[in-house]
Simulated assay, not measured.
Amino acid sequence: MNDTKNKKLPLFIGIPAVFLLILLRFGLYFLKSDGFSGLSMLLPVLLLCFLIFAFCTSAFFASWVYQDCKKRGDDPALWTTVVFIAAPFFGLLIYFLRRSELKRTCPACGRRISFKANYCEECGIPIENKEENAMMLKQETHHLPLIAAGVISMALMLMCLTGFIVSAAGNGVNTDPASNDRIWNLGVINMNSNSCSDGVWKLEFQSASSGFIKEQDMKIVDADTQMLHADISCKTVPEGATLVLWLVQGDMAQSINVTNLSEPLEYPLNEFENGKIHVRLQINGVKDTVSEISIQERQ
């Protein structure tokens, strides 16, 4: 009894720990990204539910495989790990292709033999318990609650995934550089450095997906006497590539092409109000770019 409790203890500790890690991951991402502004709340909820149901699906099917392995004399720990890690679809497929035949113990020599065998391959004794063999074969589908729970979890997982894709393809993700909400990028950027210290935003990147936007919130203290200072150099500019600087505050949005600046840009801010302003760089194919942007007093 104690051995059984000790074997189940990792499950009781591990499953809640995984759920806590998932929730912690979402919480940290929420704080790092200033919340989910610009992203429909339905998307993170659906994604979280998808991960939870995917975990449950793998856990239920892995539990069934564990019981099935014990019944067939296979290594339950190995196959349970394979099914859980390889995801339920591929893991179960591999298991069903490789699992051993259902066997019983020879009453004479103790060798594991097939339930369908007419005699023992080791000692040659005839096997006459046909009725018992047939009954055991009929009971081959065991632990049906685990299978049912796995199928239900899988259906819910697919529903959440479908809802996530449909929502993301619709209006769930904000990619408008003129929006006052946070921008969510669907691409990637290869950065060397990105920092903001003492009101100076320094960004250096090698390349990025077309349309990728990096942004930094800055503060206007006196719009009538301050200006935006931008020192930007694009070393590699393929044909048709651009780098656009966006200044967004509420309903006010201004864009400036800063692809080929011959000298630092000094842009007046008197059209804006005092307070927070979104400063964005929309990357459209330029590479090997170094930028330094700040809000300064007019000379």
Rank of each mutant, 00 (worst) to 15 (best):
H143V: 02
V166H: 01
I256F: 12
P126C: 05
I127H: 09
T57Y: 00
P268T: 00
A148M: 11
V279L: 03
L43V: 12
L31P: 00
F272E: 11
L137T: 10
M136T: 13
L102W: 09
A178C: 04
N180W: 04
L28Y: 06
P145Q: 01
M157A: 10
K71D: 14
V166T: 15
E132I: 08
H278F: 14
F36H: 07
P177D: 12
L186Y: 04
P264C: 12
A241S: 14
G199C: 08
K219L: 13
Q139K: 13
G199P: 13
S294L: 02
D75C: 00
L92N: 14
L158G: 01
W64V: 00
L97M: 15
A168F: 06
N171A: 11
L39T: 13
P238Y: 02
V290Y: 10
I127M: 14
T242M: 11
S100N: 11
L78Q: 05
A108S: 15
V173W: 05
I13D: 03
M41L: 15
Q254S: 09
L28K: 12
F26K: 02
N174G: 06
E131S: 13
V173N: 02
Y29F: 11
P88A: 15
L39Y: 10
N185Y: 05
L203W: 02
G199T: 09
F61C: 04
G38K: 04
G211W: 08
S193W: 03
T141P: 10
Q249E: 05
L46I: 09
L243N: 12
K5E: 14
P268C: 01
R104S: 10
L43W: 00
D288Y: 11
Q296H: 03
Y119N: 09
A208M: 07
E263Y: 10
F50T: 01
S33L: 09
R98A: 14
M218W: 10
T289K: 06
R280Q: 04
T80L: 12
Q139W: 00
L243R: 06
S209D: 15
N129M: 06
L137P: 01
V83K: 11
L161I: 01
H142K: 00
G27E: 10
Q226N: 12
L243K: 06
D222C: 10
M159H: 01
R280L: 07
E273T: 12
V258N: 07
